[in-house]
Nucleic acid binder design. Structure first.
Lengths: 240, 240
DNA sequence: TTCCCGATGTGATTCAAATCACAAGACCAT
DNA sequence: ATGGTCTTGTGATTTGAATCACATCGGGAA
């Protein structure tokens, strides 16, 4: 089956190829069966808004395919990108569990396939099975852990260069390239968006990247960055 | 019973006066009974370190009395205070559940009474009772929610004045004073520590507070601040 | 192709806040 | 009371990065 946005649909969680290595898809058969029954699968085009911060939680969104940009914004219009979520990740989980409003805005940045589960259904699902509930608690803990690191980054790294270096290293390790001699990072965001991720201005990002290229630490191949001197990047990320 | 550090000991969670209004103490009788059996109650003096970031999780710490400073620090020695936890709060929960290392360092800032539960005991406790497990998931969600707000604060508010204003308002609302005409906030931290909470320098905090006093927005009575113009503070916190 | 608009690159200028460098209080212990 | 140590107050200086202001590039639509 092919969706209107030109990608293959994953029919069932039971046979999804991400099952093995994704946090939330990794449930016992029986639970997964129940999950199948309460989920709604939808395909979204690029730029679709799944939910908006401060909305009351409608339920959870499980990304099967594609990536989603999570952002927060201030009354004055400034926005900050919190993270780019990939296939296998669950969005809106904490809001759905606690009943508090969504804390971020979620917008697809490419065509996505997403499973949605209504809040009531999901809560019933949790309360029916300790294993599922524990899994969710575990997952929430990991998310908490990650956000704490985020804070550490934002609060402790005072220079923009440091934050950019950290971001690039994170991206290269996520794509499993960091153990190569010259890891490559595909840039999926504009300089403006990168700036919003590290809390700086667009011009600063442009200048920093130019500097890194000048010093032969980076090199660009179209929209792909080649990290030519990982050690130097690490240096920048840790010190200062 | 009186502890070595001069405070009354809360003998049992079943009779603790915080039970009604605290998140985690609010468990059904049966669960609380089990909790009683696996917990170790300890009294700590001011300045005791409960756990250090990056340590493997030994278990959870439930504050019965006193306050605990949670901080993260960078390799270069800079540290940032994440929050001041009060009676009723649980520390080390996410690390204990997920098995990842503690994400912060916890240090008492006054004499404390704390219940400790070993990781294995706690996990068993969780897995034995869906209600407890769900409660924990709920709690983790709230914590996640709060950290997200933290990020929003750090990342979107660029001026130090704004962050300080936000912090003062938060403190006044926590102490339930914010609905009064002139809320009072007891300063429990030094300027240095306040600076670490909002990611700025000690001198900046001193100067900002002096400014606020000059403009009659604040007023100090010893170590207590009186917020004389809450509207102005709110103004500072939201805009800019 | 040509036009157009969004993304980049780069200088010049401005500004908030870090840093440095002391002075003056505040508080504790002897 | 006296000395010592930690906290607070304040000036002077420096600086990283925001902001402003354009020039240029590049890719999609007509």
């Amino acid at each position: 089956m092919i969706s209107p946005y030109g990608m293959e649909i994953v029919e069932s969680c039971l046979t999804c190829k991400f099952r093995a290595d994704r946090v939330f898809c990794d449930l016992p058969q029986s639970a997964l069966q129940t999950f199948e029954e309460i989920k709604y699968t939808t395909a979204y085009p690029e730029g679709a808004v799944l939910f908006v911060e401060h909305q009351a939680p409608r339920g959870i969104f499980l990304i099967c395919r594609g990536s989603v940009k999570l952002s927060v914004s201030a009354p004055n219009g400034k926005t900050m990108i919190v993270k780019i979520a990939e296939a296998g990740e669950v969005l809106g989980l904490s809001a759905t569990v606690s009943g508090r409003s969504y804390e971020v805005t979620a917008e697809t940045i490419d065509p996505c396939q997403i499973n949605f589960v209504k809040r009531e259904d999901f809560l019933r699902f949790l309360k029916n099975d300790v294993n599922v509930c524990f899994k969710v608690a575990e997952h929430l803990s990991e998310k908490y852990h990650n956000v704490c690191n985020e804070i550490r980054c934002l609060g402790l790294s005072h220079s923009a260069a440091e934050k950019l270096a950290k971001l690039l290293l994170e991206w290269s390790s996520k794509s499993g390239e960091s153990n190569k001699a010259e890891p490559r990072v595909k840039l999926r965001l504009t300089h403006e968006e990168i700036a919003q991720m590290i809390g700086t201005s667009r011009e600063t990002v442009t200048r920093l990247l130019a500097d890194l290229k000048k010093h032969q630490i980076l090199n660009s191949r179209g929209s792909t960055l080649v990290i030519r001197n990982q050690a130097a990047l690490r240096e920048m990320a840790n010190n200062n």
